[in-house]
Design a protein around this nucleic acid. Sequence first.
DNA 1: CGGTTGTTTGACGCAGTTCAAGCGGAGTGG
DNA 2: CCACTCCGCTTGAACTGCGTCAAACAACCG
Lengths: 241, 241
Amino acid sequence: MDSHIVLRKLLLHGDLSTEEKNAFLSLIETPRTVEAQRVMVEEESAPQHSLVLLDGFACRFKSLTGDRRQILSFQIPGDISDVHSYILKVMDHSVMTLTQSIVAEMKHDRIREVCERFPNLTHVIWRDTMVESAIFREWLTTIGQLPAVSRVAHLLCEQYFRLKAVGRASGNSVSLPLTQSDIADALGISVVHANRTLQELRQMRLIELRSRTLTILDWEQLAKIGVFRQRYLHYRDHHHS
Amino acid sequence: MDSHIVLRKLLLHGDLSTEEKNAFLSLIETPRTVEAQRVMVEEESAPQHSLVLLDGFACRFKSLTGDRRQILSFQIPGDISDVHSYILKVMDHSVMTLTQSIVAEMKHDRIREVCERFPNLTHVIWRDTMVESAIFREWLTTIGQLPAVSRVAHLLCEQYFRLKAVGRASGNSVSLPLTQSDIADALGISVVHANRTLQELRQMRLIELRSRTLTILDWEQLAKIGVFRQRYLHYRDHHHS
DNA sequence: CGGTTGTTTGACGCAGTTCAAGCGGAGTGG
DNA sequence: CCACTCCGCTTGAACTGCGTCAAACAACCG
């Protein structure tokens, strides 16, 4: 599995010289396959390496009492799943796969070495973490202020948009292997309501979502309902409106 | 006004040599006073400098249609109000003062210079931004999963704890100049409900909150209701439980 | 002392929750 | 190849936390 997808993603919001690119790629260890529904990084642990997702789907989440959990973000191919452990040392949340995935490690001490030699590479990785932070702010706003339909619409727009940016869209369809329960846990609504809301969007003929494939039928309307402005993703070239 | 409070805050989760400390302090320009309720950084702008808050209270927020807004975080003395503009260039949210404040600028090109010379300083500032990101994740979880009482309790715990960490607490009291409307906008609830929830906490004899002063009467219970575990703040020395 | 901004209270309505049951597909074992 | 099970999706009905509207009250300030 080629690790260039990580580079591709990184370059969505930063520039690197050839030397820096190679230095970065040299950090990525041999990939391995991980089965679905497997917790890869545990809250409160302090790993010696960070993970990058080369293929598949994963999510960060926090567990609460009972069976409640909040999904904090969905990881798609190219995402660095936890720079957190590199910078913050102790995890304040967990990371698990949603589907079978291919991941690779980046050892912390090697990251530090390379970062000290290439300040600009540091800057680009830092930028990547700041973009993620921007996504948290957007989710906070969506969940704090918008009703369920808008939250779902926003989530679908974001996932489609990000997947497209790393070349995982075919036309107006993407593979989106989330259960309704995942969607509910990400948006702070109940599974039942997630279901009803999805039906609403289907009946409005804005989307199709079956057998893990999302098709956007009316991007403009969907983006409007979800109050989705892609600016917060901080991509350099603004395709799509 | 002395700018050492910023250093103090930074050192809550990182270590710096004397040389690095001085380099950092040299970045901070002459402080100036800003009146209350003043937008200092506008969404979509691209400032040439970042701001640090030396005294007073400020908040980051995103505006939506109507008069709705989501407050993303409260800035207290010592906080770097927007490293965002340094790394991401274009702001995806605004920053405004809540009370009269003292702020100082840090010019972006000077930050870059100093950061290239001191990789460890870069690391510590990066860490600071990651802690902020951790707070966003915590808010996301709180707002997504917990009922209003818990949200309010959590917010009060966090503010008290952070203020105490920079030396702004006297006993179990802190000055907390937030209106109920600020609290509501931060937690995704209505002003009316914020009011009723605060009354509930007062009647339970967990807090006092009047004339901009918060007093914690029963920390343990409050933390329990708010599901507050300070670990997510990533402070190095764990006072308080 | 009037105006403005923040807090408090009451009544009513609704978006979303919870409980509970039924349904369909995919995998497994006899 | 059928029965059984598990998991995810769907549906209905009853309930409730919180929002909205509206008005009164309190505090601060010029």
